[in-house]
C-alpha cells in the first residue's frame, strides 16, 4: 500500500464506500475521533483544518453530517455547529442545502502566521519535548520495521515522496510533503497501528514544524537525513535507519523549542529600567 497523492490511504480494497476522493473510512475515522481538549469547538476547528493541511480532506470533500460528527467527536451538535461556523467564516467550508447538500471543503487553509504563533505560544517546552519524544519513538520503531519488511516497490514509493519533498516549496507544501514521507514509512512497516499513531503525530506537529516563524525550518538541513534514511533502508540496516530518524527528530524538537523560547523571551516589552 502506498501513500502518494494518487493512491488512497486504505489498505482494504473491500472498503469501497468512500465519502470522497481518496482515503478509506478506516483511517478517516481518526479525523473524527473523540477529543481530549477542553475547548472543544476550537479543537474541532484545529483538527479539521489540520486534516485539510495534510491533504486528508480535499477541496470538494463532503464532511459527515453534524449529527455524525457530534457523535464521533463526542460533543453536542451545537459545538459542531459552532466549529463549522468558524470554518465557514474562514472560507474553508461551505454548507449547501438540498438533496445533494451538506458541508463541503471549498478551499485549503493558508498557513496563518499569527495562528501558528498563537499555537506555539500555547504549547509549553515540556509539551514540545514530549511531542518530539513521541514522534521519535513511533518513527524509529516504524523505520526499523520498514528496514526489514519493505520490498523494492515500498522503497521506491518512499523515494518518490522524498523527491516530491525536494521539489516542495512553501510552508504548506513542505509540511505536507514531509508528513507523507513519515506516513509512508509506517505503511512500509506493515503496521496499521503505527500508521495511525504517526498520522495523529503529523496532524499535531507538521504545520507547526514548518511554520514561517522567526527562522523557519530549512529544507536543505532536513534533506541529508532523508538521504541517510533511504541509504540505510536499502542496506536493511535497522540501527543506522533508526539513528538517522532520531537525529532528524531531535533537530526538529530543538528547532521548535528554540522558536518557542525566542517568541516567549523576546516578544513583548522588556523592563525599561533593565540595562543590557
Amino acid at each position: 500500500m502506498t501513500l502518494t497523492d494518487d493512491h488512497s490511504f486504505g489498505s482494504d480494497p473491500s472498503s469501497a464506500a468512500r465519502s470522497s476522493s481518496g482515503g478509506s473510512q478506516g483511517l478517516r475515522q481518526h479525523i473524527y475521533r473523540a477529543l481530549p481538549e477542553i475547548d472543544r469547538a476550537e479543537a474541532i476547528v484545529t483538527r479539521l483544518r489540520d486534516s485539510m493541511s495534510l491533504g486528508l480532506l480535499r477541496e470538494g470533500d463532503r464532511l459527515p453530517s453534524e449529527v455524525e460528527m457530534a457523535e464521533s467527536f463526542g460533543v453536542s451538535p451545537t459545538t459542531v455547529r459552532e466549529a463549522l461556523s468558524a470554518l465557514r467564516s474562514k472560507g474553508l467550508v461551505e454548507t449547501r442545502r438540498g438533496r445533494s447538500g451538506g458541508t463541503f471543503v471549498v478551499s485549503l487553509p493558508a498557513s496563518s502566521v499569527p495562528m501558528m504563533r498563537q499555537r506555539l505560544e500555547g504549547l509549553s517546552v515540556v509539551q514540545l519535548r514530549d511531542m518530539g519524544d513521541h514522534r521519535s519513538a513511533i518513527s524509529a520503531a516504524s523505520i526499523q520495521l520498514a528496514a526489514t519488511r519493505a520490498v523494492d516497490s515500498d522503497l521506491h514509493a518512499i523515494e518518490r515522496l522524498v523527491e516530491a519533498f525536494e521539489r516542495a516549496d512553501g510552508t504548506h507544501t513542505l509540511a505536507r510533503a514531509d508528513s507523507r514521507i513519515w506516513l509512508e514509512i509506517a505503511v512500509s512497516a506493515q503496521s496499521r497501528r503505527l500508521l495511525v499513531a504517526q498520522l495523529h503525530l503529523q496532524l499535531e506537529s507538521s504545520e507547526l514544524l514548518w511554520a514561517p516563524l522567526g527562522s523557519p525550518r530549512s529544507k536543505s538541513s532536513v534533506l541529508p537525513y532523508f538521504g541517510q534514511m533511504m541509504e540505510a533502508l536499502h542496506r536493511r540496516d535497522r540501527e543506522a535507519a533508526a539513528s538517522a530518524v532520531a537525529q532528524r527528530i531531535q533537530d526538529d524538537t530543538f528547532h521548535m523549542i528554540d522558536q518557542k523560547l525566542t517568541l516567549a523571551l523576546h516578544e513583548g516589552s522588556k523592563d525599561d529600567n533593565h540595562a543590557r
Binding site: V126, F254, I257, A264, L265, G268, R276
Partner: peptide, 27 residues
C-alpha cells in the same frame, strides 16, 4: 526571564531539569 539577559536552567532534586531558557537543556 525576559528580565534576565543570560540563559539559565531551573533544576529539581537530583539535577533533573524543570525548565530552561535555552533549547540546549530540555525539561
Amino acid at each position: 526571564a525576559k528580565n534576565v539577559s543570560g540563559r539559565f536552567v531551573l533544576l529539581g532534586a537530583q539535577g533533573r531539569i524543570v525548565c530552561s531558557t535555552t533549547a540546549r537543556f530540555l525539561p
